[in-house]
Amino acid sequence: MIRSILFSTTTALLLSACSQVAPRGTGDLGVVVERASGSVQIIESTHQTALARVEGLGDLSHASMVFSPDQRYAYVFGRDGGLSRIDLLERRLDRRIIQGGNSIGGAISQDGKLIAVSNYVPGGVKVFDAATLQQVADIPATPLADGSKRSRVVGLVDAPGRRFVFSLFDTGEIWSADFSQGHTPRIERYKDIGQQPYDALVTPDGRYYMAGLFGEDGMAQLDLWHPERGVRRVLGHYGRGEEKLPVYKMPHLEGWALAADQAFVPAVGHHQVLVMDPRTWQQTATIAVAGQPVFVTARPDGRQLWVNFAYPDNDRVQVIDTETHALVADLRPGPAVLHMEFTARGDQLWLSARDGDQVQVWDPYSLKRLGSLPASAPSGIFFSSRAQRMGY
């Protein structure tokens, strides 16, 4: 009898082990947004394959995401106000809530314990426990003059010291929310920073927060080491003032590049990439490109920039040498290239061709395409290595 029980128990354990997914790490995992179907694909870069599709994520027309510090969970911010947590190892939707009416992005705190979401409707930022998605704080934005609604919030990033920094599009402000003492944040407000800040970035060391201005020339910069100095104007002489070209798609400042001791930023309404000295934040050069740039993405070794464009040039990707500013390649990957993402060590460049229903993998050194994966109207591509980077 004892032998029979031991045999049955051992057999059951072996069968159970065989039925489970083999253990693996998460360092090579990524997520591709399928914007038209409210789904995402979990991908892996080692063998360039798709592992699973996770559905039921709502409106992903402007979706972005962040990752937990252990790189197991992806937090997806949907345009419909949905906040979803995806388990990358179990390849499933772990939790989902509707926290607002129109969300435009989010961030994860430095310690990975808080998730902040920026909202157009209702205007403001809501903050959640990363493990449970229970709300812990609500930060309403400034009401508009007519009292009908609150300002839309954009450019939300994480900053050192368990802080979140964001911009108010309609009222021209930058706010910093400090959660270092608990769930009741200390708010610092900076007014009159410029008209219509549309997006923002934080430098890799977390020192400078920079908001691009759509309503006037220039950018607004807050030194987070010395916030008492207030916000100063950067590139105040440059913008849309000279020739107001139609803007078909707003550039994403999260896709800026810091490489070869230079900062590269997409220009608004111009067929140019701006070059700045990151020590003085003064413009040093201008690089002419094929169209209005959306993302300016640096290869991890800093030698090249990969630039994609708004309509009608969104079938092109141009590669630029950061040392000489010369055009290295003018590629035509396919219709509607929306996003580009390097693997952590730069051996691969993944890009989404929305209207071609595919994700492509390129060798950024030989400039040859390595392969492609089918996807339903893909847009954003996010690798889990973002978990180890500030502002991502």
Rank of each mutant, 00 (worst) to 15 (best):
G100R: 03
L222D: 06
H237N: 10
D315F: 10
L235Y: 01
R96P: 01
M340T: 07
W306L: 12
H62I: 12
Q20K: 08
W362F: 09
S84C: 08
Y208P: 00
L29N: 07
S151F: 09
G215A: 03
V76W: 04
P335E: 14
P364Y: 03
R279Q: 13
P246E: 02
G58P: 09
Y73F: 15
Q358Y: 09
Q181D: 12
A200Y: 06
T49V: 13
L89P: 03
A259D: 06
A131E: 15
S180D: 10
T132C: 02
L13E: 03
L370W: 00
H183S: 13
R354C: 12
D192P: 11
P251E: 07
D138P: 01
E216K: 00
Y120E: 15
T132S: 15
I2H: 02
G112R: 02
V268H: 03
S19R: 12
V268A: 02
A50F: 09
H252T: 04
L168E: 15
D330C: 00
R91A: 11
D94P: 02
L57I: 01
L224A: 02
I43R: 14
I97C: 03
R186H: 15
S45G: 00
V231N: 03
R369W: 05
A298E: 08
P227I: 12
A12P: 00
Y238I: 08
H62N: 12
S61K: 09
Q358R: 15
Q358H: 12
L222K: 04
L235T: 02
L235G: 02
D138C: 01
G81Y: 09
Q20D: 01
I43G: 11
K113Y: 04
D170G: 01
S167Y: 05
A329L: 03
G334I: 06
Q41T: 03
V265Y: 13
S372K: 13
S379Q: 07
G212R: 02
Q292L: 10
S376H: 11
E173F: 06
V157T: 13
P143M: 03
Y238S: 07
D192G: 12
T184M: 05
R152A: 15
I187W: 09
G58I: 11
F179E: 05
R299N: 10
E188W: 11
H237L: 09
I108E: 06
A220D: 07
G101W: 06
S384V: 06
K126A: 14
D146H: 02
F179D: 04
Y209R: 05
H325S: 13
D158I: 06
G212P: 03
I187L: 14
H237A: 14
A298G: 08
V328D: 03
D59Q: 08
T297Y: 04
A288T: 14
I98R: 14
V289F: 10
R96N: 04
P204R: 04
D158A: 15
L83W: 09
Q196S: 08
D277W: 01
A50P: 08
S379L: 06
F383P: 01
V21F: 13
S4G: 00
W350G: 07
M340S: 07
M250D: 06
H62Y: 13
